[in-house]
């Protein structure tokens, strides 16, 4: 997808993850960038279990024409940004369809309270079977290499922009990063963002 060009009306994006992983930060960047590019955008984040380890999802509906309700219709997602494998599959089961594109952080985030995590290989095979295209980006691993897992969502943002699955280019994100991360923390976040682009190129 080229910057400024929407291939489908509306275009439905879901960011699936676990409370505390930062999906609201990610949906905020994408939403603000889209508004700046002149799109009509509704962003709905799961509320209540953020920071508390429950499964969360942000839904972004993008349109050129009108403001839609924020929640994706069953089976109607176009792009799935998975911050965690099982959460990716959870969203696919509800909102997936044969055309969906999935970009996934393959690192599991284990549920607490003794809940068993399914076989990761089986989860990955199911994600691939249910998506028209699947890309894995090791964002947590890369963030830990940079010294803090907190950078993983900015790396993921870079990967999503680099993959060309949103009507946004990297230029739409730079000013937002500068606004959000003032002073010396900007540099490392820019590095994280570029790392994400590099991972998918």
């Amino acid at each position: 997808m080229r910057p400024g060009k929407l291939e489908k009306e509306p275009y439905n994006v879901i960011i699936a993850g676990v409370g505390g992983q930062g999906n609201v930060l990610l949906s905020g960047f994408i939403g603000a960038a889209l508004v700046n590019e002149g799109f009509m955008v509704s962003v709905a984040d799961t509320f209540g279990v953020s920071q508390r380890g429950g499964s969360v999802a942000s839904h972004i509906k993008i349109s050129r024409k009108t403001l839609y309700s924020s929640v994706t219709l069953k089976g109607k997602a176009d792009l799935l940004i998975g911050m965690e494998p099982v959460e990716t599959l959870r969203s696919l089961a509800e909102f997936g369809n044969p055309g969906i594109i999935s970009i996934v952080n393959p690192r599991p985030f284990y549920p607490s309270g003794g809940v068993a995590y399914p076989d990761l290989g089986e989860v990955r095979r199911a994600i691939e079977r249910m998506s028209s295209r699947t890309s894995y980006v090791n964002v947590t691993e890369e963030a830990l290499k940079m010294g803090n897992p907190i950078y993983s969502n900015i790396i993921l943002l870079g990967a999503v922009i680099g993959a060309g699955v949103l009507p946004l280019g990297e230029e739409s994100i730079f000013p937002l990063l500068a606004e959000r991360f003032p002073g010396e923390i900007l540099e490392i976040n820019l590095r994280a963002f570029r790392k994400g682009i590099e991972l998918v190129s």
């Binding site: 676990v18 409370g19 505390g20 279990v49 920071q51 508390r52 380890g53 429950g54 499964s55 089976g75 099982v86 959460e87 599959l89 959870r90 696919l92 089961a93 509800e94 997936g96 369809n97 044969p98 549920p111 607490s112 309270g113 809940v115 068993a116 995590y117 399914p118 089986e122 989860v123 199911a126 079977r129 249910m130």
Partner: peptide, 21 residues
């Protein structure tokens, strides 16, 4: 066919109880 895959996927996905941080 896709709906059947969804049912299988949903069965594979565990619950994720909320927790204290």
């Amino acid at each position: 066919a896709y709906e059947e895959m969804c049912v299988e996927a949903a069965a594979l996905v565990p619950g994720r109880p909320i927790n204290m941080c």
